[in-house]
Each structure stands twice: as C-alpha cells, then as structure tokens.
Amino acid sequence: MKYKVVIIEDNIPLSHGFATSINKTENFHVVSIYETCETAIENIKKDDADIYLVDIDLPGINGVEGTKQIKSMQPNCNILMVTVHENSTMVFDALCAGATGYLTKSLSPEKLINALNETIEGGAPMSIKIAKMVVGSFQKKQSEISLSEREKEVLMMLSDGNSYSVIANKLFISKNTIKFHLKKIYAKLQVNSNVMAVQKANKENLI
C-alpha cells in the first residue's frame, strides 16, 4: 500500500517536480496537486491523504490557516510545510497550527523522500537551522511572562487559600500593596480575577 500525498503549492514547476520525485518511490503516491488551500479543502474527503505538503505563502487562505482547517477536518493526517521562509515566527505558527514538520524548498529530492519516510515513522522532520529556530521560539514564548519574586509569593499564598489580611501579615506589607501587586499580575497574565491568575500561573509553571 502506498501512502497518499497531496501537494498544495502555487509554484507549478516546483509542485510537479515534487510529484515526479515522490511518484518514483515505492511507498508514496501523489493523488492531487492544488494551487490553493480552498480547493484542497473542498476535496479533502475525496483525496483522504496521509501527508500534505503545504506552501505557507498561498493566495487566499495561507498555509498556516489552511493547516488549521485541514487538521480540524482530518486530524490524523500529517502536514509538512514546504517554503522558502526560514522565519522563526512562521515556523512557530505553522507548528502550533498542527504542522508535523517544516522544510525549505531548497531541499533535494532525496531529502524530501527521507522527510516523508520520517513523517510516516512518527518523526517531525525539519532542517537543523529551523530546529534551532523552533527551540528559540518556544523558549521565547515561555519567557514572555515574568513575575517578580514578591508577585510569586502573593500568588502562591492566594493559591493556598490565604486572605489578603493573612498575606499582608505574613509578608509584612499592607493590603493596598497586595492589591497593587495583583494589578500588575493581572496585566502580565492578561486575566481579571485571583482564580484565573492562579490557574494561569500554574499552567505557565510560574509558581
């Protein structure tokens, strides 16, 4: 049985070049080539593909949004972003949208086939340069929220069920100071209640 591949790429020579390389293999077969995500989505049930190769800069629905829609309709498929861009924001957005891997258009036919095989085996193919960008993006995302030690103390004591009065006594500060810290915490976490602040801080491993 050959795995079915769909190519979504508006560069026709490139998409046909990919198809030629893929169709020479024993494991993969290109069932459809589309120039837009809209057309691919219309035919998603008919194609029932195992792997989608998707360009990120497509007219109309771009590759990131297209990936979201394809994954929502066909959760078990794999999507590889194939693009000229090596931009960390685009990389991060594509992977967050559900892409399995991210490769550049400059890759050789051999590396393309290796990426398809790696994907089917459960891997997440991407170039070394892009892998470093992804790690950097995740680290940046994780470090965007930063609480002071005092703010962490206030949140931890709130999570333990302490009242403002108890916290004020234990930290030797006034209730107004606690409210001031909470106002800053709300702004940083983008929440509007103590419960939401504690929940988000726990989720982000801030306390």
Rank of each mutant, 00 (worst) to 15 (best):
T25L: 11
L58W: 07
S88Y: 09
D160W: 12
P125S: 05
S108N: 05
M81A: 12
N162W: 09
N192C: 11
S165L: 14
I7R: 08
K46S: 15
S193D: 09
K183L: 10
V6N: 10
K200D: 05
A124R: 09
A49P: 05
V166H: 05
S165H: 06
N192T: 06
E9L: 15
K132I: 06
V54P: 04
F92D: 09
E42K: 06
Q139R: 15
E110P: 02
L206T: 04
S137K: 14
I128Y: 07
H29I: 09
I12E: 15
V195G: 00
F18W: 12
P125H: 06
C77E: 00
T100G: 01
D55M: 09
Q74R: 07
M157C: 13
Q139H: 14
A197R: 05
A115F: 00
K68T: 05
K141P: 01
N43K: 01
H85A: 13
Q199K: 00
I56M: 07
E151T: 02
V195I: 09
N76S: 08
V6T: 11
T177H: 11
K129M: 06
N205W: 03
K152G: 06
V64P: 12
A124D: 06
R150E: 15
Q74N: 12
N169V: 09
S146R: 12
K129T: 13
N176I: 04
T100S: 08
L171E: 11
N11D: 15
K170I: 04
E35C: 15
A40M: 03
T104E: 04
N43S: 04
E38A: 10
N194W: 00
F92E: 09
E118I: 05
S174D: 14
E86Q: 09
S15N: 11
P75V: 02
A187Q: 07
A97F: 14
G161T: 01
P109N: 03
L147Y: 04
K4I: 02
V91K: 05
K184M: 07
N202P: 01
I185D: 10
N114P: 01
I8L: 12
D10P: 07
T67L: 12
S21D: 08
A40I: 01
I44N: 00
E144F: 08
V135Y: 08
S72V: 03
H181R: 01
F138M: 10
K184T: 14
L158S: 02
K203G: 03
K179S: 01
E35S: 15
G66D: 00
K179N: 08
K170G: 06
E42N: 11
A97E: 15
S127L: 13
E204C: 06
N23I: 13
M126Y: 01
S88D: 07
I51S: 02
L14T: 15
S174Q: 06
N23M: 14
N194G: 00
I120S: 07
I7A: 10
K141R: 08
I41Q: 01
L171Y: 10
Q69N: 04
G17D: 10
K170L: 07
K71I: 11
T20Y: 11
V166Q: 12
S163N: 04
A201E: 04
T36A: 08
N192P: 02
V82T: 03
H181E: 12
K200R: 05
K2D: 15
E86V: 04
L107K: 01
